[in-house]
């Protein structure tokens, strides 16, 4: 089975090409990091994988678990096991976290033809997962991301990931806006969840995040394509001399 294969992908928005003949293979259990300067197309790639309809796919293929991802809409991709941890999680006042996540999980279970989880069992599961991430039960009574600090929003993204148990997670600059302590809490959460069945694509500007989550591969992205691939030492090189050599 092909886990994730992105082949000759070309994407534009408002007539401007953002992703240019992009190619990437990710196998089950692998952690990949994409680094690159501002405007290199990293967040566009994350959104295209999640199914954001604002972008125009000019050509190319994305195969995920033998499915043509480009034939699926946003929610179908999520149900198949794709999870985007947002750079700027949206505040949705009035939509309570608990019933929202309950509905999310059940839609996924239903899609997998598994038995849906009842409210009581879900509440127990959510409390347990929240405790693991040091998230207070008060936070679970609140509306989605409403009034959350930057660190709380990112922790809440990790909580959702942990409940929904996706096979492929994209972290879109999860480290942005986090202080050192918050970054540590968030990355500890990610590491707790990591196992051989789950793959990650980490999008970041800085090496710091990769000190906590060790990637198997590091790629440098410029002008919508990967210009160099390597291991963690590539991140150290970028930290030392920036992107000017790529």
């Amino acid at each position: 089975m092909i886990f994730l294969n992105i082949n000759n992908l070309n994407v534009s928005i408002d007539g401007k090409k953002i992703i240019d003949n992009f190619n990437l293979n990710i196998n089950q259990g692998e952690i990949h990091a994409i680094m690159g300067p501002n405007g290199s197309g990293k967040s566009t790639l994350a959104n295209v994988l999640a199914g954001n309809e604002d972008y125009e796919i000019i050509s190319g293929k994305i195969i995920f678990k033998d499915h043509n991802l480009l034939d699926l809409n946003i929610e179908e991709r999520a149900k198949l096991g794709i999870f985007l941890a947002f750079q700027y999680p949206v505040e949705i006042p009035g939509v309570n976290i608990t019933p929202f996540l309950h509905a999310s999980l059940n839609s996924k279970l239903k899609n997998q033809k598994k038995e849906e989880i009842d409210s009581l069992s879900f509440a127990k599961l959510l409390r347990k997962k929240a405790e693991e991430l040091s998230i207070s039960s008060d936070m679970l009574k609140r509306s989605i991301n409403t009034g959350f600090s930057g660190g709380e929003k990112k922790r809440y993204e990790i909580l959702q990931m942990s409940v929904l148990n996706p096979e492929f997670t994209i972290f879109d600059e999860t480290d942005s806006g986090l202080d050192v302590d918050a970054l540590k809490i968030v990355t500890e959460g990610i590491n707790k969840f990591k196992n051989k069945n789950n793959s990650y694509l980490i999008i970041t500007h800085y090496q710091k995040l990769l000190d906590y989550i060790k990637p198997d591969f590091v790629h440098v992205m410029r002008n919508g394509k990967i210009v160099k691939s390597g291991n963690i030492s590539l991140a150290s090189e970028i930290e030392k001399s920036g992107y000017k050599n790529f």
Partner: peptide, 19 residues
């Protein structure tokens, strides 16, 4: 955001409108 968590478009609309 809601759809990216597996909630279908109609249900997501209803959640936002109810809220």
């Amino acid at each position: 955001y809601l759809r990216s968590r597996g909630i279908n478009k109609k249900q997501a609309m209803k959640m936002i409108i109810s809220s």
